[in-house]
Computed example of a mutant assay.
Amino acid sequence: MSTFLHQPRLSADELFRTLRARFPGANLERTTTAAGVEVIGVSVARNRVRAVWDEWRGRHGETGWWPYVTRLSPDDVAVTGGRDRVDAAALEELMSGVVCQDHDALAASVTVSGFRWSAEGGDEEDAEEWRDAYDPDRLAPELGPALAQPLPGVSRWGTGDRDVFRTHGRRWLNFVPARGGYELPVLLPWLIGTGNWSGYGDRILSLADDAAVLRRWHEQWGAEVFLAQGAYLELVVDRPPLEPRAAAQVVTELLGYCRDVVGDPRGVGDGMARSTMWSLWWD
Rank of each mutant, 00 (worst) to 15 (best):
S2F: 15
A12H: 10
D13R: 12
T18G: 14
L19T: 01
R22A: 15
G25I: 06
E29F: 03
E29H: 12
R30A: 14
R30C: 07
A35S: 15
G36T: 10
E38I: 06
V42P: 09
V42A: 10
V42E: 04
V42G: 04
S43G: 05
V44Q: 12
W56L: 05
G58K: 08
G58A: 00
R59L: 15
G61A: 14
Y68W: 09
L72Y: 14
D75T: 13
D75L: 14
T80A: 15
A88T: 13
A90T: 12
S96V: 02
G97E: 14
C100I: 01
D102S: 11
A105P: 02
V110C: 08
V112P: 03
S113K: 14
F115G: 06
R116G: 06
D123I: 02
D126I: 07
E129P: 00
R131T: 07
D132L: 15
D132V: 09
Y134T: 01
D135F: 02
L139A: 08
G144H: 02
A148H: 10
A148Q: 12
A148Y: 00
A148I: 00
Q149F: 11
V154R: 12
G160S: 01
T167M: 12
G169E: 03
R171T: 05
L173D: 04
N174V: 05
F175N: 04
P177E: 06
P185C: 10
W190Y: 15
L191D: 04
I192E: 09
L205Y: 11
L214T: 02
W217I: 05
L227H: 00
Q229R: 04
Q229I: 00
V237S: 05
D238P: 00
L242G: 13
P244H: 08
P244E: 08
A247S: 15
L255M: 08
G256W: 01
Y257P: 05
Y257T: 01
R259C: 15
G263I: 05
A273P: 06
R274H: 04
S279Q: 03
L280G: 03
W281N: 11
